Amino acid sequence: MHIPKLSVVVTVFNEEENIKPLLDAVYSAMGELDYELILVDDGSSDQTIREVKKIANRRTKLIIFNKNYGQTTALAAGIDHATGQYIATMDGDLQNDPSDIPMMLNKAIDENWDVVAGRRADRKDGFVLRKLPSKIANYVIRNTTKVYLKDYGCSLRVYKAQIAQNMELYGELHRFIPVLAKQEGATMTEVAVKHHPRIHGDSKYGLSRTFKVIADLILMLFFQKYLQRPIHIFGTLGLFSFLIGIIINLYLLVDKILGADIWGRPILLLGFIFLLAGIQLITTGIIAEIIVRTYFESQDKKTYKVKEVFTGDI
């Protein structure tokens, strides 16, 4: 089986007007490179699939989902189907420029980087709705995860295949792929790349994703520190809570022995709450430990279903 040097993975969702310029740009940028192009259609309801099938060449493979699963799952499917030694990822809205990929690939090869991440040098987005929230999010993610990239929102990246294919992608963790890669021991660098304004279609993202990013960040921090030892966080919090409950109840016991009436006092209720919370947290930690062991020993199951795999023949 022929193994190409590069697999270019592009996720698309309702991008019918962008398909032709997208494919033209990729084919032109890749030139004589030994590559394959993998498009993942994430349940488009327009004519995206028809447009791909109309102009795709033999280097192009289209993975068609039976419904919309989200960008992270689509990205995971593309990486699963990639056969190249290196994997490049980018969005299908033409804001990323595929002409940057050869430069990034050469940097990864020549300098032996596991991940080369793009940084949008002159971002063509609105300041209030896109740039400002992005700057804040990048700052928070950098300083909480200690993975110091400047642009977590740029999808244009090049990975060594073994790094990309060992990452566990699910939910909406595509924003935190550099953090996941770092957990695999990846070395990474960041380079300036071109960025274009969206010409066709509408952005699939807005301010509504802010709370999702915060929730995913909390999950990511848990993964970084406690994925393989959840008892350390639940057990520690549980023991701390249990200890506070014991202290409160010992105080009330001494107070009772000295003749005080403790019934109905708010501190009595507080003591019982801390005791019960401690027991519950410790129990949760034990259950989480069992789940983690089951997770690492379980069979590999995909989080998506493929409706069709189409290979171009032009």
Rank of each mutant, 00 (worst) to 15 (best):
169 L>R: 07
49 I>S: 06
75 L>A: 01
16 E>K: 10
171 G>R: 01
79 I>N: 09
95 Q>Y: 04
21 P>G: 07
168 E>K: 13
99 S>G: 02
14 N>Q: 10
92 G>D: 00
303 T>I: 14
236 T>Q: 08
130 R>A: 05
69 Y>H: 10
224 Q>M: 13
208 S>R: 12
179 V>Y: 00
297 E>L: 11
136 I>M: 13
184 E>L: 13
45 S>R: 11
157 R>K: 15
201 G>M: 03
208 S>M: 09
28 S>H: 08
178 P>K: 01
191 V>M: 15
113 W>V: 08
180 L>C: 02
38 I>E: 01
239 L>I: 14
245 G>Q: 08
213 V>R: 02
200 H>R: 09
188 M>D: 02
1 M>K: 12
134 S>W: 04
233 I>H: 04
225 K>F: 08
163 I>D: 00
313 D>Y: 10
221 L>D: 07
167 M>V: 10
102 P>D: 03
286 I>G: 04
43 G>D: 04
129 L>F: 05
146 K>A: 11
20 K>S: 09
141 I>K: 01
163 I>P: 00
90 M>C: 06
178 P>Q: 03
219 L>I: 07
96 N>T: 07
24 D>I: 00
243 L>Y: 13
172 E>K: 09
84 G>E: 05
269 L>H: 15
90 M>F: 10
32 E>N: 09
195 H>I: 02
210 T>M: 06
96 N>K: 01
50 R>T: 13
114 D>T: 04
290 I>Y: 13
2 H>R: 13
215 A>Q: 12
252 L>F: 10
105 L>N: 10
132 L>D: 08
276 L>Y: 13
56 A>D: 01
261 D>V: 03
280 Q>T: 14
92 G>K: 01
239 L>F: 14
138 N>M: 09
49 I>Y: 02
243 L>C: 12
223 F>W: 08
89 T>M: 02
209 R>T: 08
121 A>D: 13
7 S>T: 06
233 I>Q: 03
95 Q>V: 14
249 N>E: 14
163 I>H: 02
135 K>E: 15
105 L>V: 11
121 A>Y: 12
82 A>D: 04
16 E>N: 10
97 D>G: 00
38 I>D: 01
294 T>F: 14
209 R>P: 00
22 L>F: 07
64 I>H: 00
276 L>R: 07
177 I>D: 07
250 L>A: 14
